[in-house]
């Protein structure tokens, strides 16, 4: 069962000038987020992440394509009772206290007074703001606003939680708290879909990720599967008592050669050349110390995709608009 499905989602904006092509923010984006998983939605600024989230929440209408949340087409008002949302850099009614603020969103979700009181107490404790219950939001720091925003997204105990850059503005402790919170939500059977550009967080907590570039989904799957697909994985070979200077064969195999005293570090672009290199080291009388396959990270994959996209012709697309 998929909680989020998009099929060939496209969003374009008229340029405002006759003859000028429209700006395409999303270009046939198709993805599926399974029930009960944490899905990380990755992409650089302007890739289309926020546009996708806005379409899912009915804030923006897609030019073409379809999207479904919890099995219902986006725009279905009743379905939103089962969805929690935290926007990027949230701005809230700053004249409200934290308690009033959460109460307001609880009422909008149709909760009764008793349920609201209980949820407000629980959630303010969960996000570490119990002390600030009666403080107006205008007196909150950016990190506190982010945390009360998270509490707002969870006030009605939704099944699907959509978060736009939830780690933004948080210190390392706050980020860890949010990571733990997201993991605990999954443990409770919730589905979490969040956009981010902090790759470390994605690698740590996401079951699956999707990478969006220039409005297109360029990769999607489990983090380990995506990283395994990467063909540029390198190997680091360390040896000693070997003079690499002037050895054209070694230089032709390696992407980088570093000689530090007796030791030498040779970086190969792939495991294919390891045998040839080890043979050459032995022939030259060197001593092999280690062979370490360098496991490519999600960051490597991300930059590889970004570089490939950047080198592609733009055709009808225009880059630069914030997502």
């Amino acid at each position: 069962m998929d909680d989020i499905v998009t099929e060939n989602l496209t969003k374009s904006y008229a340029s405002g000038w006759p003859g000028r092509p429209p700006f395409v923010a999303l270009d046939g984006l198709s993805l599926a987020v399974r029930r009960g998983e944490i899905f990380g939605f990755l992409g650089p600024n302007g890739a289309g992440k926020t546009t996708t989230l806005k379409i899912l929440l009915g804030l923006v209408r897609a030019t073409s394509g379809h999207a479904f949340l919890l099995g219902q087409p986006v725009g279905d008002v009743a379905t939103r009772r089962r969805i929690g949302f935290l926007p990027e850099s949230p701005y809230f009614y700053d004249y409200l206290t934290a308690e009033e603020f959460l109460g307001f969103y609880g009422q909008l979700a149709g909760l009764d007074r008793a349920a609201i009181n209980q949820r407000v107490t629980d959630l303010l404790g969960l996000v570490g703001l119990a002390e600030a219950r009666t403080r107006q939001l205008r007196k909150f720091s950016k990190g506190m606003l982010q945390r009360v925003g998270l509490a707002q997204a969870l006030i009605h105990d939704p099944e699907l939680i959509i978060l736009d850059e939830p780690m933004t503005g948080l210190d390392p402790v706050g980020r860890k708290q949010v990571r733990d919170l997201i993991l605990s939500l999954r443990d409770c059977g919730k589905t979490v879909f969040f956009s981010t550009h902090i790759l470390h967080d994605v690698e740590m907590i996401c079951d699956r990720v999707g990478i969006v570039m220039k409005g297109r989904l360029v990769a999607s799957g489990r983090v380990d599967e995506l990283v395994r697909q990467d063909h540029t994985r390198s190997v680091e070979v360390v040896c000693q008592q070997l003079k690499v200077e002037g050895n054209a064969f070694i230089h032709s195999l390696a992407t980088r050669v570093l000689q530090q005293g007796q030791q030498c570090l040779i970086v190969l672009p792939s495991p294919d050349a390891v045998d040839a290199l080890v043979g050459e080291i032995r022939r030259q009388g060197g001593q092999l110390l280690s062979v370490t396959p360098h496991k490519a990270s999600l960051e490597d994959l991300f930059f590889q995709e970004a570089t490939q996209q950047a080198s592609r012709p733009l055709s009808h697309m225009t880059s630069g608009r914030a997502s």
């Binding site: 806005k54 929440l57 009915g58 804030l59 008002v77 009743a78 379905t79 939103r80 009772r81 969805i83 949302f85 935290l86 926007p87 949230p90 701005y91 809230f92 009614y93 969103y105 909008l108 979700a109 149709g110 925003g149 707002q152 997204a153 959509i162």
Partner: peptide, 14 residues
């Protein structure tokens, strides 16, 4: 302008 509309429209309200 203050983007408070985002969280309101994400609720079950027309």
């Amino acid at each position: 302008e203050r983007r408070t509309i985002y969280t309101i429209m994400a609720r079950p309200i027309s």
